Simulated scan of single mutants.
Amino acid sequence: MANLTLLYAKAALTGFRRHGDALPESSLDAEVSVDSEHMARYAKVCGFGVRDELPITYPHVLGFELQLRLMTGPLFPFPLAGLVHVANRITQHRPLTVAEPLSLHVALANLRPHERGRQFDVVTTVSVDGEEAWVDVSTYLRRTGSAVSTRDELEPPVPTAQWRLPGDLGRRYADVSGDRNPIHVNALAAKVFGFPRAIAHGMWSKARCLAALEGRLPDAYEVDVRFKAPILLPGKVDFSASPGGDGWRFALWSRRPHLEGVISPVRRP
């Protein structure tokens, strides 16, 4: 993960120079072979069983270096520090396996207004033998002006399980994902950005929810989540999941919602 450490250093040194109102029309591609030992370590941290099939969230990790390279490129308009990961949607057309060589394509897209600033997408596509098999759309918010309170006044759902999250969870996930954003691994750095303690990675929380539903989901499905509020580490969260129609709804709560998600089957034409 040495390259990612250098990219974070680059982001810190160049952030003050970044400004603009357009995304560059740039993309990156890579051919990737899955390291089964790395995938097994990822599965353990996130709660998945170890199988030949990749956890649905694992390709996000494979594409993370390309995503970071685009967001630290010379024409990218926003400082990396302060970007907020507000949503993630993954569409899996079929399970991917450890033995398959994967073709990755990552692009920036759809810069648009948001009530608290501007948001954009980082789109990662995985193809096998020229056929699209998996697509990830991560939405990031660049805040401008004062934050608007959006505290939910909803009753929490009935919990299915309660999870205690250790203080080193951010470091452990960073070790397998390469996402070493300091707010996840260092309490002092987190305080600089207004958090009392380090916070869990959003993509860990999504992965952990899906791991809890492992064995009950179809081969082809879409999972769409909204990241509501940070999870402080160490901490305790309630997980809830309920089937509805032909899909699922799930959430993570403590005193307020942290994540809300919907799973829908994908039907091939």
Rank of each mutant, 00 (worst) to 15 (best):
M1N: 07
A2F: 12
L4M: 15
L4I: 09
Y8M: 09
A9T: 08
K10H: 15
A12W: 10
F16A: 15
D21R: 14
A22N: 12
E25M: 03
L28F: 11
A30Q: 11
V32R: 10
V34I: 00
E37G: 08
H38P: 06
R41W: 02
A43Q: 12
A43L: 01
C46K: 11
G47K: 04
R51G: 03
R51C: 02
E53P: 01
P55C: 02
Y58F: 13
Y58W: 06
H60A: 13
L62Y: 10
G63H: 13
L66A: 11
L68I: 05
L68D: 09
M71W: 07
G73V: 06
L75S: 15
L75D: 12
L75E: 09
F76P: 08
F76E: 13
F76T: 05
P77I: 06
P77W: 13
F78I: 02
P79M: 10
R89D: 05
I90K: 08
T91I: 00
L96V: 12
L96K: 12
E100V: 13
S103V: 04
S103P: 00
H105S: 13
A109V: 08
R116S: 11
G117R: 06
V123M: 15
V123Y: 10
V126I: 11
S127V: 07
S127E: 03
V128T: 10
G130Y: 02
E132R: 09
A133C: 14
W134R: 05
V135L: 15
L141S: 02
R143L: 02
T144L: 01
G145A: 03
V148Q: 15
T150F: 07
D152W: 11
D152A: 14
L154G: 00
P156I: 03
P156W: 06
V158D: 09
T160E: 00
Q162W: 09
R164M: 02
R164V: 15
P166H: 03
G167P: 11
G167H: 04
L169D: 06
D175L: 13
D175K: 03
D175A: 15
P182F: 00
I183N: 05
H184Q: 01
A189H: 05
A189C: 15
V192F: 08
F193V: 13
G194N: 04
F195G: 04
P196F: 01
A198W: 03
I199N: 08
G202S: 00
K206F: 00
A207R: 01
L210A: 09
L213G: 08
R216V: 06
L217T: 08
E222K: 05
V223P: 04
V223C: 12
V223H: 04
R226S: 07
R226D: 07
F227Y: 15
P230L: 05
P234Y: 01
G235N: 12
K236I: 04
S240C: 14
G245D: 05
G247M: 07
W248F: 12
L252H: 03
S254L: 09
R255Y: 09
R255D: 14
R256Q: 12
S264T: 13
S264N: 10
R267N: 04
R267E: 08
